[in-house]
Design a protein around this nucleic acid. Sequence first.
DNA 1: GGCCGGGCACTTGTATACAATCCGCTTTTT
DNA 2: AAAAAGCGGATTGTATACAAGTGCCCGGCC
Lengths: 224, 224
Amino acid sequence: MSNSDSQPTRSLNITEALREQLLQGEFPPHARLQEIALAERMGVSRTPIRGALSVLARDGLLEYAPNRGYTVRHFSLDDILSAFRVRAVLEGLGCRLLAEQGLADDTEQRLQQALHRGEQLLQEAQLQQGQFDEWRDMNKAFHLAILLATHNDLLVRFAKISRNIPIVFNGSFKWYTLKDFHRSQDHHEVIYSALKNRQPERADFMMQEHILQAAEILRRNYPG
Amino acid sequence: MSNSDSQPTRSLNITEALREQLLQGEFPPHARLQEIALAERMGVSRTPIRGALSVLARDGLLEYAPNRGYTVRHFSLDDILSAFRVRAVLEGLGCRLLAEQGLADDTEQRLQQALHRGEQLLQEAQLQQGQFDEWRDMNKAFHLAILLATHNDLLVRFAKISRNIPIVFNGSFKWYTLKDFHRSQDHHEVIYSALKNRQPERADFMMQEHILQAAEILRRNYPG
DNA sequence: GGCCGGGCACTTGTATACAATCCGCTTTTT
DNA sequence: AAAAAGCGGATTGTATACAAGTGCCCGGCC
């Protein structure tokens, strides 16, 4: 039997559940997360809660003060733009590395699949009606495929963490115009082309441009 | 009274103590870290140990499998070079950002101080006698000053984590020739100059070069 | 009135007891 | 003899009791 991963523990489940809630913005910034309250809410004891809080703080979603507990971190617009800038160079590096080492078959397939799905979505009428869940999934798949193909653990970890920001997490797609979606699709195609033709510089640059444009859209629309 | 940070808890102390031991290579790769054994060794109960292990796993120093506990992560040469490549773009970005926004007075002083100390150390005979503790501190101060000055939390966090690798942590200075030390000092001077003259491109490039050269020295000397 | 200090409620930190899981071994079965 | 099933020691996961720290209110004091 493939027991490569065993039963997930309560602590792990709680961690992911809480993370999801934080990313969906269900807790207001600076709110205290008290262990007993959470334990009752989630139906477990304090022990797994403490584990979850510790991890989420390490991931930057919570702030911690010894003997004083955890609070929901507030992300200013600057914080978010800073994170985008970091993510841009990281994923840019991912593209560069992948263009240097060449595309494996399965990676190429995954990328093509994402491109194809993007085309489809652009032709359907859904995007204008605020149904961008599929677009978000497609986008995620495209970016993740590149990162994973580099086999650079640290890069993957950092890139994932740098996306763990409330509001931003689901993408800022709700603010995208149809033109923005088309441009985004174009970027993906250029990036794919650069990867396939082994053009590290071009792939890196285009990915950075791609991510920084997303940041710009967010900056223009961010409340406050 | 400045109670900005309160009494560090046992968990935090243990975390840092264990981290230090891991970075010094006191545990062999793949070694199991069992909670009870560690608890006795450190003179506390399992609770703070579990907290520490969880954090260190999140920082990539340990591997974790549910119900099976923690093992010391093995870093292959490739893992280490990958980490260097990530660190290079991160600190490169730090330089770029700082060159864009300009040097604050206190940052400039810190950097000048590090440069000055570097000069001194090069003139003394210590470096050839394997006493590079001071060089390591100077180097750390230089790099950290740049990172902190960017005020980009995520960048600082990632850069710190990307240095948390056994063996590499103390720098690969033991393999440096005198020429390498001089070249490193040169790099620092060029980087400082680029920051002061607001040359983002140059600062970024030089920092990447600086870090990748360190990686190259390590690659040439890495055992196995 | 404002400042200092003690006490009290509440929260987090730690130790420990108990439950669940894993892993190696033996035993059983074919 | 090989494979499956199952027992038992050891280790991790969880709950809970207790210790220690924090913040706040209130009362005494200058």
